[in-house]
Amino acid sequence: MKIINQFGVILAFWLAGEAIGGLLNPIIKIPGAIMGMVLLAIALSMGLLKEASIKDASDLLLNNISFFFVPASIGVLALTGITLPVIAKIILITLISTITTMWVTMWVTTKLMKRFEKGGRTE
């Protein structure tokens, strides 16, 4: 029963996220589940919610994260019309973009740390 209650708490945050996301929709589009995630992190940080009241259900989900994507990935069977050259192109773009993203993030972070965190080296 404990884990079911924990799922209940998580679902309540999701629903609250959907409600707030709906209200914000004219200004900025934020998916309900993402808003729920932000609300959960805020509630935990402010001490409004204890980690223990969602821990087991959350860890069950987080520790098996890729399992829950199996059905969505099988949807590839329903895909048609993607040719080999297109696949080659998107893989090439992904490779180049991943290399540059990784390098730029590391470079900018290193530069900033030299500037702002002189005293606080934490290697």
Binding site: W14, G17, L40, L62, I65
Partner: peptide, 12 residues
């Protein structure tokens, strides 16, 4: 859905 919400705990 609940998995995405649970990422809030990871962030925390």
């Amino acid at each position: 859905g609940p998995l995405t919400v649970a990422l809030g705990l990871m962030l925390f």
